[in-house]
Amino acid sequence: MKYFMFLIFVLLFFDAKGQCCLHTDLSRKFDYKVIRLDHKDADGFARESKIIIELYKKSDKKLFQKIQFKTEGIGLSNVFSKCSDDRSYITGQNMKTEILDGDYGDIVIADFNFDGKEDFAIKYNIPADVGPEYCYFIQGDKGFKKDEYLSNQMLWFPWLINSKKHQLISIVSPNWGTRIYKFQYNVFSKKWRKIGNRFFRHDEGLDEELIRLKNI
């Protein structure tokens, strides 16, 4: 009961001060609460935002972990203002929602390192000419930790998660074509490496390559 009373208070408070969303359908183990706090400059514009992610255990509604970080470029956007903008490869939530311009949702739950545990990705930057960039958090024995390699190298959410080959493939499409990045995970060393970086000018031959990647 205290959990839900606190949630109501937070929702009312952040309606005026920022944004707060509770995601209950993304995980079988956790509820994800995402809070966005805007830092406004002297002119009243939100130049920077702080994102707070709180994970509550479904079993007892107790706080499991709290994560926070600063964003780079969402201060003037509507990111995290629409609570239904989420996706889960674990429960199937919003998996049929159309993906536009590389936008998979404000927060996305999936298994990125192929260990059977859910991880999550969350938006942290909105570049002007390509899709949103994501931070990736991997679940370990003691909670979730930011994956520095994926967050710095695989900025765009993976178009394809190949659990059979332990590969993630991301796509970015500026105006002059499309670039495909491939990342390979070694389950023994627990390290990533980039194994592909191919550019298709004006998207010539892109459809054939995407079909090939889906079928390998």
Results as ranks from 00 to 15, higher is better:
Lys2Trp: 10
Lys2His: 14
Lys2Phe: 13
Tyr3Asn: 07
Tyr3Phe: 15
Phe4Asn: 13
Met5Glu: 15
Ile8Ser: 14
Ile8Asp: 12
Leu11Trp: 04
Leu12Lys: 09
Phe14His: 03
Asp15Val: 10
Asp15Ala: 12
Ala16His: 09
Gly18Ala: 07
Gln19Met: 10
Cys20Asn: 08
His23Ile: 12
Leu26Gln: 09
Ser27Trp: 14
Ser27Pro: 14
Lys29Asn: 14
Tyr32Gly: 01
Tyr32Cys: 03
Val34Lys: 00
Val34Thr: 00
Arg36Asn: 01
Asp38Thr: 03
His39Met: 08
His39Arg: 03
Lys40Met: 03
Asp41Phe: 01
Ala42Gln: 04
Arg47Phe: 14
Arg47His: 12
Glu48Thr: 09
Ser49Trp: 01
Lys50Ile: 08
Ile53Gln: 00
Glu54Leu: 06
Glu54Tyr: 06
Leu55Phe: 08
Tyr56Cys: 11
Tyr56Glu: 08
Lys58Phe: 06
Lys61His: 15
Leu63Trp: 06
Gln65Ser: 02
Lys66Phe: 03
Gln68Pro: 05
Phe69Asp: 04
Thr71Met: 00
Thr71Leu: 00
Ile74Trp: 00
Gly75Lys: 08
Gly75Gln: 08
Leu76Arg: 13
Leu76Lys: 13
Phe80Val: 00
Lys82Cys: 07
Cys83Ile: 00
Ser84Trp: 03
Asp85Tyr: 11
Arg87Ala: 06
Ile90Ser: 11
Gly92Arg: 05
Gln93Thr: 15
Lys96Phe: 12
Thr97Ala: 08
Ile99Asp: 08
Gly105Ser: 06
Asp106Leu: 07
Val108Trp: 01
Val108His: 05
Ala110Trp: 00
Phe112Gln: 02
Asp115Tyr: 01
Glu118Cys: 01
Asp119Ser: 06
Ala121Pro: 01
Ala121Leu: 06
Ala121Asp: 03
Ala121Arg: 05
Ile122Val: 15
Lys123Val: 15
Pro127Trp: 08
Ala128Ile: 10
Val130Arg: 01
Val130Met: 03
Gly131Ala: 07
Pro132Glu: 03
Pro132Gln: 01
Glu133Asp: 12
Cys135Leu: 12
Cys135Ser: 13
Tyr136Ile: 05
Tyr136Ser: 10
Phe137Tyr: 12
Phe137Cys: 11
Gln139Ala: 15
Gly140Pro: 06
Gly140Asn: 09
Lys142Met: 06
Lys142Gly: 09
Lys146Phe: 04
Glu148Gln: 14
Leu150Arg: 11
Ser151Trp: 06
Phe157Cys: 13
Pro158Cys: 13
Pro158Asp: 13
Trp159Phe: 13
Ile161Lys: 02
His166Ile: 00
Gln167Glu: 10
Ile169Val: 09
Ile171Gln: 11
Val172Ile: 13
Val172Gln: 10
Ser173Asp: 09
Ser173Gln: 10
Ser173Asn: 09
Trp176Ser: 04
Gly177Lys: 00
Ile180Thr: 07
Tyr181Gln: 03
Phe183Lys: 09
Gln184His: 12
Asn186Phe: 04
Phe188Met: 15
Lys190Leu: 12
Trp192Ile: 07
Arg193His: 04
Lys194Asn: 07
Gly196Gln: 02
Arg198Thr: 15
Phe199Ile: 03
His202Glu: 13
Asp203Glu: 10
Glu204Val: 15
Ile211Phe: 11
Ile211Lys: 13
Leu213Pro: 01
Leu213Ala: 02
Lys214Pro: 01
